[in-house]
Amino acid sequence: MTKKKPAIVKRFDDYFGAGTLEDWQRLCGDVGLSEDFGSKTKCRKALKRVHVNIHDLLSAIENGHAVHRFRNVRELAEYSVREGKIYPKRWVKDGPIKALLRCIA
């Protein structure tokens, strides 16, 4: 029996798309990275240095706002726990979500 995909997982999957280089580059641009990344690997490495709440990332994109970036993992963790905005770890696969996900416990 498979469990129904949580709404946040579906929202991210819908936003990200098929995972082409262009999808990765769009994500990098959406989180405020202005460098021209020529490969998925370069995008992935750059995203590992960015601290964003995935719920807020999607809301900002959907509403045409800038994405809030936290200065460090601690600030992201405190905010995410306080607001109850946690991406379900069991749904993490390799790819952009893994590059963005931080251990906040």
Score class of each variant (00 low, 15 high):
residue 44 R to Q: 11
residue 105 A to C: 07
residue 55 H to P: 02
residue 87 Y to T: 10
residue 90 R to F: 08
residue 78 E to Q: 14
residue 17 G to I: 04
residue 83 E to C: 06
residue 20 T to Y: 06
residue 31 V to Q: 00
residue 84 G to D: 01
residue 12 F to P: 00
residue 38 G to C: 12
residue 43 C to K: 02
residue 59 S to D: 15
residue 1 M to A: 10
residue 34 S to T: 14
residue 47 L to A: 06
residue 98 K to T: 12
residue 77 A to S: 14
residue 26 R to C: 02
residue 49 R to A: 13
residue 100 L to P: 05
residue 76 L to W: 06
residue 77 A to C: 09
residue 66 A to N: 09
residue 9 V to L: 05
residue 95 G to I: 03
residue 13 D to T: 05
residue 41 T to I: 12
residue 28 C to G: 04
residue 92 V to K: 08
residue 57 L to H: 01
residue 97 I to A: 03
residue 76 L to A: 09
residue 49 R to I: 02
residue 81 V to A: 12
residue 75 E to G: 11
residue 4 K to E: 14
residue 37 F to L: 15
residue 38 G to F: 10
residue 97 I to M: 12
residue 27 L to F: 06
residue 97 I to L: 13
residue 54 I to F: 04
residue 40 K to A: 06
residue 96 P to K: 02
residue 88 P to T: 12
residue 27 L to T: 01
residue 26 R to T: 05
residue 69 R to H: 07
residue 51 H to P: 05
residue 101 L to S: 14
residue 80 S to A: 15
residue 60 A to D: 09
residue 62 E to N: 08
residue 25 Q to S: 02
residue 59 S to E: 15
residue 7 A to K: 15
residue 21 L to N: 03
residue 69 R to V: 07
residue 17 G to S: 04
residue 98 K to C: 13
residue 33 L to R: 06
residue 66 A to I: 09
residue 97 I to R: 05
residue 89 K to E: 13
residue 70 F to N: 03
residue 3 K to L: 13
residue 78 E to L: 13
residue 6 P to M: 08
residue 60 A to T: 02
residue 93 K to W: 08
residue 93 K to D: 11
residue 64 G to H: 08
residue 8 I to W: 03
residue 63 N to V: 06
residue 20 T to W: 04
residue 65 H to W: 09
residue 23 D to A: 06
residue 105 A to S: 10
residue 71 R to T: 15
residue 77 A to I: 07
residue 44 R to L: 03
residue 83 E to S: 07
residue 100 L to V: 08
residue 25 Q to M: 04
residue 36 D to F: 10
residue 78 E to I: 11
residue 79 Y to G: 06
residue 5 K to M: 12
residue 48 K to M: 12
residue 58 L to K: 00
residue 51 H to L: 05
residue 68 H to D: 02
residue 5 K to W: 06
residue 24 W to P: 00
residue 60 A to W: 02
residue 56 D to S: 09
residue 44 R to F: 06
residue 43 C to S: 10
residue 93 K to N: 11
residue 88 P to N: 13
residue 17 G to P: 03
residue 70 F to K: 03
residue 13 D to R: 07
residue 37 F to H: 13
residue 42 K to P: 00
residue 2 T to H: 11
residue 37 F to G: 01
residue 92 V to P: 05
residue 46 A to L: 02
residue 33 L to H: 05
residue 28 C to Y: 01
residue 18 A to P: 01
residue 86 I to G: 00
residue 6 P to G: 05
residue 31 V to A: 00
residue 37 F to W: 10
residue 80 S to Y: 03
residue 79 Y to I: 05
